Simulated assay, not measured.
Amino acid sequence: MSEEKLIPVFIPALVAILVNLEDKKGSPLSYEEVIDIRDNASVIMMEKSRADALAESRGYDDIDPENCWYDWQICRRDMDRKPDLDPGARITMTNSNDASMQQAFADARQSLSQFRKLIHSNTDEGFFPLIKTKFVLDDGNMFVWLRVVETSDTRFIAELFEVPAELRDYEIGDTFDVEDAAIMDWMINHDGAMHGG
């Protein structure tokens, strides 16, 4: 019996379901609608090699369920659907002990002074500074992007602007005091254009 990891696969593809339901609605699906559609869609567990083969036969990769809203908005942009909606930022669940990841985290922390300068030099309404930090969960580490609302020389006050299903105990707007040492990455969303990261 194969011991290959099983991953969830939407049948039909989640992106196809979202396209169909948005067309029926006649306007963009809301965040809540997208998450509800994902949570109620049909899923089968499939070995990764078979899932990869299915994606190849389809001619496209389906939406990542952990980043459903983000991936859906990027798909909408690729299909030139209007109006364009802010996708927010992707979340990542991974092994933080990986050497290349540790180097990327260190590089991000070394450039925080540059990030702070960018924050203090821009007051545009469409300017959203973001930091990535780690949430420790029972089944692994989740790296989550937070929107910076305040900064000092050694830390940031930042808030959740979207809540992944894995963070069910939190709400949009919850704030966190994040020390520089806990920052894994930073970026700026300026009217939908991403800088840094």
Rank of each mutant, 00 (worst) to 15 (best):
Asp39Arg: 08
Asn40Val: 04
Val43Glu: 05
Ile44Leu: 12
Ile44Ser: 10
Met45Phe: 14
Met46Lys: 07
Glu47Met: 15
Asp52Leu: 11
Asp52Glu: 13
Asp52Gln: 08
Asp52Tyr: 10
Ala53Phe: 05
Ser57Pro: 07
Arg58Cys: 07
Arg58Asn: 14
Gly59Lys: 09
Tyr60Ala: 05
Tyr60Asp: 07
Tyr60Ile: 00
Asp61Glu: 06
Asp62Leu: 01
Ile63Leu: 06
Ile63Arg: 00
Asp64Gly: 04
Asp64Phe: 04
Pro65Leu: 03
Glu66Ser: 09
Cys68Ser: 10
Cys68Glu: 00
Trp69Met: 10
Trp69Phe: 10
Trp69Thr: 00
Asp71Ile: 04
Asp71Pro: 06
Gln73Asp: 05
Arg77Asp: 05
Arg77Lys: 13
Asp78Glu: 14
Met79Tyr: 13
Met79Phe: 15
Asp80Tyr: 11
Lys82Pro: 01
Pro83Leu: 06
Asp84Gly: 12
Asp84Ser: 15
Leu85Arg: 03
Gly88Trp: 02
Gly88Pro: 05
Arg90Ile: 14
Ile91Cys: 12
Ile91Ala: 02
Ile91Thr: 13
Ile91Trp: 05
Thr94Val: 14
Ser96Leu: 11
Ser96Arg: 03
Ser96Phe: 01
Ala99His: 12
Ser100Arg: 09
Met101Asn: 06
Gln102Lys: 15
Ala106Glu: 13
Asp107Gln: 12
Gln110Ser: 07
Leu112His: 02
Ser113Phe: 13
Gln114Val: 15
Gln114His: 10
Ile119Val: 11
Ile119Tyr: 03
His120Phe: 10
Asn122Phe: 12
Asn122Ile: 04
Asp124Pro: 01
Asp124Gly: 06
Asp124Asn: 14
Glu125Asp: 15
Glu125Ser: 14
Pro129Thr: 08
Thr133His: 03
Lys134Pro: 02
Val136Met: 10
Val136Gly: 09
Asp138Met: 13
Asp139Ser: 14
Asn141Ile: 00
Met142Tyr: 00
Val144Thr: 00
Trp145Pro: 02
Val149His: 12
Val149Ser: 04
Val149Cys: 02
Asp153Tyr: 07
Thr154Ala: 14
Arg155Met: 09
Ile157Gly: 01
Ala158Asp: 00
Glu159Asp: 03
Glu162Gly: 07
Glu162Lys: 09
Glu162Ile: 06
Val163Asp: 05
Ile172Met: 04
Ile172Gln: 11
Ile172Thr: 14
Asp174Glu: 01
Asp174Ala: 13
Asp174His: 07
Thr175Asn: 08
Asp177Ser: 06
Asp177Glu: 14
Asp177Arg: 03
Val178Ile: 15
Asp180Cys: 00
Asp180Ile: 05
